[in-house]
Design a protein around this nucleic acid. Structure first.
Lengths: 143, 143
DNA sequence: CAACATCTGTTTGTATACGAGCAATCTCGG
DNA sequence: CCGAGATTGCTCGTATACAAACAGATGTTG
């Protein structure tokens, strides 16, 4: 199963889906940061889930936002430092730490929502509307 | 420019292109890590550029691999620690540090290439071949 | 040629991202 | 009720990723 010279000739980094996925993600993060003040995309995602679902255990919040337990811990920590969420023990299961939006967190999320929607539009702006719909549909199949 | 309730009702994190771009990228990194032993996608990208272009200044290598100067520094550092690249001063421009593949680096790249190509295929495997082509074309327009 | 701007690489600080290993807790089968 | 297995959250170590500030080298321009 050795790599033939043909493979190497055919290899063009710029055409690799993985490389372009990474770049597209970088571009989206940059756009989001410009349009949404004071929240990273991941922090916003966490607020969005809490807004939608109410109080959630830290690990469950992580699963809903595609972050492992080590990552979500840091995100929750920083959201707590900004007083956007609070956490408390679950009385019926001592393992759980329930995380919940604060009033300020709810307000910040609602104010950030417009920018987040704009970020999506700007990220997809190199595409026509039809292409953007197709791209989002294919992307959804990938994840 | 306040956010109307309608916006909030319409907001579904899982349908956001940005969120799915992040997840798709995570998935690709996981697949790549499984199929390519001992190299991260970014490290592989750097080797690929050096393989294609020969010696490059550190910053230029960063631009060709979509990493800023702080990021590429760490990547080159780790590649040097593994003896896959070497770096030296450019005589005609004292600012530059030329980075170059070592023999071992060339060999490691060639051996990793097959796995990298497999990672692309597996990443796109939820799509039909036609969809995968369409997706890659749209993705290329986005970056 | 001297002032100025630009470019390169470095450092620091912050924020994901994940593997691995750990202790506390819960669940469930026997 | 008890012990095996699963789950939760934590910690550590490693690896991107980028903003900002910096020093040194190069270029450009009046």
């Amino acid at each position: 199963m050795s790599t033939k010279p043909t493979d190497i000739d055919a290899y063009r980094l710029s055409e690799q889906a993985g490389f372009n996925l990474r770049r597209a993600n970088q571009r989206h993060v940059a756009i989001f940061s410009r349009l949404v003040e004071g929240l990273t995309p991941t922090q916003f995602a966490a607020l969005a889930r809490l807004y939608e679902f109410g109080a959630l255990s830290q690990n469950r919040l992580g699963r809903l936002t595609a972050m492992d337990s080590a990552t979500i811990k840091g995100v929750v920590e920083r959201l707590k430092a900004k007083d956007l969420v609070s956490s408390r023990a679950d009385l019926s299961d001592q393992r759980l730490r329930l995380v919940e939006l604060s009033d300020k967190g709810r307000e910040v999320f609602e104010r950030a929502l417009g920018g987040a929607l704009d970020a999506r539009v700007e990220t997809l702006s190199p595409l026509t509307e039809e292409e953007a719909r197709a791209f989002e549909a294919l992307l959804a199949k990938l994840v």
